[in-house]
Structures are given as C-alpha cells and as structure tokens.
C-alpha cells in the first residue's frame, strides 16, 4: 500500500528535506556575502571591480543551473576533490551571487545620492556612510526581491539531484524506484513539502520586511 510505503519512507523524505535546507542555507549565504561584495564593487569600486562584477554576473546568469552543476561536479573535480554537496553549493551559490548582486546593486542605487552627501557632510568616511546610512536603507529595498530569490533557490536545490546530492527530490526518486511506481503520489508529497517550506520561509521573510518597514519605506503588499 502506497501510504504505508510513504509512512515507512518518511524518515528518508525528512532527511532529504534537511539536506535540501542545508544546501539552500549554504548557497544563499555564499550568494549573500559574494553578491553584496560584488554589488558594492559595482557601485563604489574602481573600474576593474565594476568590470569584474559585470563579467561574473553575465556568466553566472547566462548559463543554465544544471549545466553549472555538471561543470562544477564533473569539470572541477578533475582538478580539486569536491563532494557533490560542495559542488552544488558552489555552482548554485555562485549563480545566486550573480542574481543577488543585481538585487543589491539596484537597492543601493535606489538610495538617493543626497543621503550619502549628508552623511559625508557631518564628517563620516565613505565606508562608514555606506554602513550606517546606505546599507540599512538598501536592505529595506532589497528584502522584497530577496524573498523571490529565496523561493527560486529553494526550488533550484532540487537540481542538485543530477550530480547525486541526496536531497529531497533524489530521495523521492529512490522511493519510486524501490516501490516500482507510485510516481504521482510520491512526487505529489514531495511537491507539497517544497510548497510548505517555501511558504514558511516566505512568512519569515515577510515578517522581517514588516519589522524593517518604517514610514518612507512602507512594506509592499506581499
């Protein structure tokens, strides 16, 4: 009976979900740190930083995620030993950095130039003004688009399946193989799990957005 099978395999599905969440957290963190660095370089940096950021963004936004995964796993592992999990973090994380850099670049640029001038005029250094004035305002502009990025990347973790990361989608495939069929129900349950995680994540991010909202930075309707 398929329900019994699903029940018996629930620990595997949960473990797969846990791996997917770890992959998501790692790739978003890499994307956040690198994306913010690239964005700051593109807005405030000298021309090599702008050019480098631009080239990086073009490459990683222009190549399909599955191709990146294959390149990092099969291509790079010829030179450096990488687990499939680490290869997935790098491939998807660098790709996310490219997307996040554009979210942050736009958010930073939407802070009016007068804010920086006012900060410099009271004697702040450039970096101090960026940290205390520009970034807190940019964060409020970025949180909405960043919520979209979270959703996209959660779903993109399922692609790590192709290089053998045993995440949620691959666990589902194992269950299907072991039980000869039941594709619709097994993947239906998996879809539901992705859906729930996505909703929960969005709910948390909307709360963050609401907390950051101040008059002048009203929350956009979710």
């Amino acid at each position: 009976m398929i329900w019994q099978t699903l029940y018996d395999n629930l620990p595997f599905l949960m473990h797969g979900t846990w791996v997917a969440l770890q992959l998501l957290a790692a790739l978003l963190a890499l994307g956040l740190v690198l994306g913010l660095t690239l964005a700051l370089g593109q807005v405030y940096g000298p021309w090599p930083a702008r050019l480098g950021g631009w080239a990086f963004e073009r490459v990683f936004r222009g190549v399909p995620a599955v191709v990146l995964l294959l390149l990092f796993y099969y291509g790079v592992t010829d030179f450096v030993a990488l687990s499939s999990f680490l290869a997935a973090v790098l491939a998807l994380g660098l790709r996310s950095a490219a997307y996040q850099s554009q979210i942050f670049r736009g958010a930073i640029q939407s802070v009016p130039a007068g804010q920086m001038q006012a900060a410099r005029a009271i004697g702040m250094g450039r970096w101090q003004a960026i940290r205390t004035i520009v970034l807190p305002q940019a964060a409020r502009h970025a949180i909405g688009p960043w919520t979209n990025e979270f959703s996209s990347e959660l779903k993109a973790t399922s692609l790590a399946y192709v290089i053998g990361v045993v995440e949620l989608t691959r666990q589902a495939k194992y269950i299907v193989s072991n039980t000869q069929g039941n594709i619709l129900i097994v993947f239906g349950v998996v879809a539901l799990i992705y859906f729930i995680v996505n909703r929960l994540g969005n709910a948390v991010l909307y709360r963050v957005e609401a907390r950051l909202a101040v008059p002048g930075f009203e929350r956009r309707s979710p």
């Binding site: 900060a119 009271i122 807190p136």
Partner: peptide
C-alpha cells in the same frame, strides 16, 4: 562645517 541641503536629506530610515 555643517551643511544644510536644499532638499533636507534627513536620513530617511
């Protein structure tokens, strides 16, 4: 040297 701007430039956040 304080500076008062035409369009105020208060820190909006």
């Amino acid at each position: 040297i304080a500076f008062v701007f035409q369009d105020f430039n208060l820190f909006t956040h």
